[in-house]
Structures are given as C-alpha cells and as structure tokens.
Amino acid sequence: MGNCLKAVSSSNDDISLLREATSIPRESSSSSEQLGPPPSYQETVNQPSSLPVYYPSPNVSRPASQLTEEEQIKIAQRMGLIQHLPTGEFDGSKKNKECAICMGDFTIGDPIRFLPCMHIYHTECIDDWLMRSFTCPSCMEPVDAALLSSYQTD
C-alpha cells in the first residue's frame, strides 16, 4: 500500500453528494433582445461552498472545481455505470434481511439495488458508496469488472 505516510485530508464532510451544478444564467442582456449570442459561460467564483463535492476515493473529498481530469473521468464513469445496475423493491424473498451499510432491516417496498455479486443494499445507501468506490461493501468485488465482463443480473 505505502499510503500511510501521506497525510489524508478530510475536510468539509457535510456537503451533499450529488447536488446539481449551478444552472446556466437565464436573463438576456438588455442590448441584444432576442437574437443575441447565447449567454456566456459564467464561473461561480462567489459561492465555492455551493459546489457539489465528489469523492475520487473514500477518504478524498474535493469540490467539483478541484478534480483532476482523471478524477472527473472516473466520477463520470461511475455515474454512468451506476445506472446500469438493476434496482427493485424489497419483497421479502431475499435471504438478506439487513442493509450492511446502514445496518437497518429491509422493509417491504424499500428501494434496493442489486450488485453483480448478488449483494443487495438500499439504493440510497449503495449509490452514496459507489460514488466513492466501485466495490461491493460486503465482498469487496470490483463492481465494474463484473459489469463489463459478464452482464448477468439475474
């Protein structure tokens, strides 16, 4: 590993994960009324705290503006891959009765997500984790490897 000598920075913990980025400014300038150029890109310099925070790895949190290009790609891939993992509602038929992340019992109708290793979690719980690490919390199987090699969801 050799990662232990590095200082692990863990600051601002309390910002939600997937908040939407700031929207495009709507108001058109007064001089060009209808056929003017599209509104120019605005950088939101004033509110760094409102930027979404991402987790390139579980112990590293960074505002969207400070991600390296490599990290941006990683995050975008994760967001895409999560959408390919099947979801459903807990119907009581699974052996697994407890979400290993929140340690709460599943109740009938809870939204759940299935990983390729067949472990299930509350959708909300596992999505939060998958945005940080694409591994199954229970068996540590890399989720994307399983997704890409064999596309079995049943």
Binding site: M1, N3, C4, C125, T135, M140
Partner: peptide, 29 residues
C-alpha cells in the same frame, strides 16, 4: 485507509487492530 468498506463496523475495526498487535507488519511501516 484505502480498504475501508461501509459494511465494516466499530467491532470489526477494533478486531483488526487487535489482530495487528498479534501480527506486526514491518514491510508496511
């Protein structure tokens, strides 16, 4: 650190620390 999983609990963390006392690993100092 990098092998953290949200399925781990306080209990499992402390068991791992106890195991580390039994098996020091000077190659990862």
């Amino acid at each position: 650190k990098d092998k953290w999983s949200p399925a781990l609990q306080i209990r499992t963390v402390l068991l791992s620390i106890q195991a580390l006392l039994s098996a020091p690993n000077p190659d990862d100092p």
